[in-house]
Design a protein around this nucleic acid. Structure first.
Lengths: 205, 205
DNA sequence: CATACTATACCGACTGGTCGGTCGGTATGC
DNA sequence: GCATACCGACCGACCAGTCGGTATAGTATG
């Protein structure tokens, strides 16, 4: 028994893999690189993860859980529950400190490929996405708005993660404020009507 | 005897590579697969492209040119020049027929990885992005708006390309209309002022 | 017209290297 | 004596890129 295993080996593998993905990209992530980083052998690695793909899936799972936790935590602090989750998500997306610490953007980006080629993961991602919108709607955000903001956030983190964004700090702040304003659920029925536009019109049954 | 080369071999290689990327993803694209598809030899391939990366760069270049052409073409038909480009981009992004024919979304997604790992490509992408926004601004769209819509479009095609989007046709239409409405440059100075909102902004209602 | 030279297009066996995964083992604690 | 954790040599596949060659079209020369 490895008494000096302060953190479980499994967790250490996960951390190392995450570091490597962030540094060199998913495509250059090899099991060999991971075990070198952790100081483990091939056999040791495959003792903890049946395949390399299992590692990736576990990493994705951990990431999603962590992000969800952060959003929930921040949303709980919002005095106004309507759209709190959405606003929390926006704020976190623009939190550059958090970005550097956890870098979920860059990580998620790395996973995009994995999502694409794995139906199971894709299904999971789709569910997650639908759930997110549904939760926003439950909090009082009109569906069209929720979809719009969600899309904008995805686009934002994508460009940030890829390093495409040429936005200044000021521009970023402006974009964030604009998004938060959109996420603000208004009491005014007129405003609410304006936001729902076409989507309303009674449908579904 | 290249007499029966109706389309240049180079072009045929590009087409084949595009097909393969769309079918199996960028990570599983190999030169061998491409030459099998085209019916060419290793030597033949490397006669046309110095490296595999050259092929990818050429493909990306062709894609960008084509998309740009489509947007410009559609924008030219818009009677209202202000924000015409942006609206054209929105419409094209939601054009599912075009999507299946050209599938630039899925292709672009495949390139995201390439962009990430290649500084030169990243620089190019950043420039392209900045140019797009600048052109929108030149057409009269407030910068904040342009950034917001651009981000939303990116997010939309990302989720579409990945296959995450769980949107119904109706939801998509609603989202598109909402985006187009945002892209509509209003004549009213008051409205224009509201859209620009930066630091100063009306709080709640 | 024939010969010679050149450039372009293409061939395919081969090389050097990477990588995921296997398997027969060892050490240790219960 | 059984389970858990870990070791590391090895295997097979895949793959980018090389290289020495062939075939043909075009052009120049005598």
């Amino acid at each position: 028994m490895a008494a000096r295993t302060y953190e479980s080996a499994r967790e250490r593998i996960l951390d190392a893999a995450q570091r490597l993905i962030l540094e060199r990209g998913m495509s250059r992530l090899s099991v060999d690189a991971v075990i070198t980083e952790v100081g483990l052998s091939k056999g040791g690695f495959f003792h903890h993860f049946k395949t390399k793909n299992d590692l990736i899936l576990a990493l994705l799972d951990r990431l999603v859980r962590r992000m969800d936790g952060l959003v929930a935590e921040l949303a709980a602090k919002d005095p106004q529950p309507r759209g709190a989750r959405l606003r929390a998500q926006i704020v976190l997306s623009f939190d550059s400190k958090r970005q550097e610490a956890e870098a979920p953007q860059a990580l998620l980006l790395a996973f995009v490929e994995a999502v694409q080629s794995q139906p199971a993961v894709r299904r999971l991602a789709r569910e997650l996405n639908a759930q997110t919108v549904a939760r926003d709607v439950a909090e009082g955000v009109p569906e069209g708005r929720a979809m719009l903001i969600q899309a904008a956030l995805d686009g934002f983190w994508l460009s940030e993660a890829v390093g495409i964004a040429a936005l200044t700090a000021k521009q970023k702040r402006a974009l964030r404020d604009e998004l938060i304003a959109l996420a603000r659920v208004e009491a005014s029925p007129a405003a609410a009507a304006r936001t729902t536009t076409k989507t309303r019109k009674g449908r579904r049954s």
